[in-house]
Amino acid sequence: MEKIPYLNPHKHTEFIGGVMVPPGEAREIDPTHHPKYRAAEAESVQAEPTHIVDVLLAGTSAAILSALPSLAIEDVELLGELEQDRAARKEVLAAVAERLLEHAAAEHDTTLQGGTGEAGGEQLGDKQGGEGGEAPGGEAAETATPAKAAKK
Rank of each mutant, 00 (worst) to 15 (best):
L112S: 09
H108E: 15
D85I: 10
L112M: 11
K90N: 15
A97R: 14
R99P: 03
A88R: 14
R89N: 05
T110I: 10
G115F: 04
A106D: 13
V92Q: 05
T111W: 08
V92I: 05
A106E: 10
E91A: 06
A94T: 00
A94D: 07
Q84Y: 10
D85P: 00
E107N: 02
L112N: 10
Q84V: 09
H103W: 04
E98I: 00
H108K: 14
A87Q: 08
A97L: 12
E102T: 01
L93K: 01
A88V: 13
G114A: 07
V96L: 12
A105M: 08
D85Q: 08
V92D: 03
D109P: 03
G114R: 04
L112P: 00
G115T: 06
A94M: 08
Q113P: 15
D109W: 09
A87Y: 04
H103M: 02
T111P: 03
D85G: 05
L93R: 01
L100N: 06
A94V: 00
E107L: 08
A104M: 03
E107Q: 09
L101C: 08
V92M: 06
R99C: 06
V96H: 08
E102I: 00
A94C: 05
D109K: 15
A106G: 12
Q113V: 01
V96I: 09
H103I: 00
V92N: 06
T110L: 12
A97C: 07
E107S: 03
A97Y: 13
T116R: 05
A105G: 01
A87D: 11
A106K: 09
R89K: 07
T110S: 11
D109Y: 08
K90I: 14
L112A: 12
L101D: 12
Q84S: 11
E107T: 03
A94I: 00
T111C: 13
A95P: 02
H108P: 04
A104R: 01
K90H: 15
G115M: 07
T116N: 05
A88Y: 15
Q84P: 00
E107K: 11
R86G: 12
G115W: 03
Q84C: 10
R86Y: 12
V92F: 04
E107F: 09
A95C: 05
L101A: 11
T110D: 11
L101Q: 13
A87P: 08
A105W: 04
